[in-house]
Design a binder for these strands. Structure first.
Lengths: 117, 117
DNA sequence: TCGATAGGTAGGAAATAACCTACGTATAGT
DNA sequence: ACTATACGTAGGTTATTTCCTACCTATCGA
């Protein structure tokens, strides 16, 4: 009746972009990408913050669907869930045309300047 | 001596991801992409917030290099600067492999289930 | 030159994010 | 059963973001 949980009640796109806004969370994704599934312990070792703070970051990543977890004994292995990132790529697509145009302009400019050398 | 401006003194990557975290700012980028360069007035018309609040969003987008401005009379035309978005694309690249793998798995699964139909 | 328009800055309030210290829960090992 | 380990939740504080109401500056048009 009173949804005030901020990040949870939002569109998937918002949750994903918001999750990626933190350098800590992007680093977690990188660690999972390069090191494969890992327990929280292992991941948290790369950061200075207290455990509950780190848990919070994991919660945000989970809410965005960017990580999954699997219990194994008393440890929880987190793994990368890359599929939601396709939403970012799709968001990016219509902009591609614009940066290509712009980079072509820059290339042409550099070519003309190349005559001087 | 005391750099506490938050968004200004950060890596370019951080500024870009942080800028994209807001739905308002993503919408501004879309408006510029679809409508071409526009004065603040025109852009602000799509949002309910007060002007200074909107100015702040423009400031964040400027700090990220995602928009540029050109004065014309008493209006300022903002335009999309898409090149910084290539940084997001590059960030995304190493994850591509993972979502492709995952989507293949899903495809295979669906194919096998297709035997039943 | 005066008033209106376009858009910014200053300063502060409210909302949210990020972090902390307890503390609770589940599992493993003894 | 008892203790240690791995993580999470609760509750609260601090930092940052977001938004607001003045107010300042520049340009346009009468």
């Amino acid at each position: 009746m009173t949804p005030t949980q901020t990040i949870e009640n939002q569109t998937a796109e918002n949750r994903i972009f918001a999750a990626l806004a933190s350098p800590v969370r992007r680093e977690v994704l990188r660690l999972l990408r390069e090191g494969g599934p890992q327990p929280v312990q292992e991941l948290a070792g790369h950061f200075e913050m207290a455990r509950p703070s780190f848990s919070e970051h994991l919660r945000v990543l989970r809410a965005a669907g960017l990580v999954g977890e699997r219990k194994n004994g008393r440890r929880r292995f987190y793994r990368l869930e890359a599929i939601p990132l396709t939403e970012v790529q799709e968001w990016l697509t219509p902009y591609e045309r614009f940066w290509r145009e712009r980079m072509n302009e820059l290339d042409n400019l550099l070519d003309r300047m190349g005559d001087d050398e």
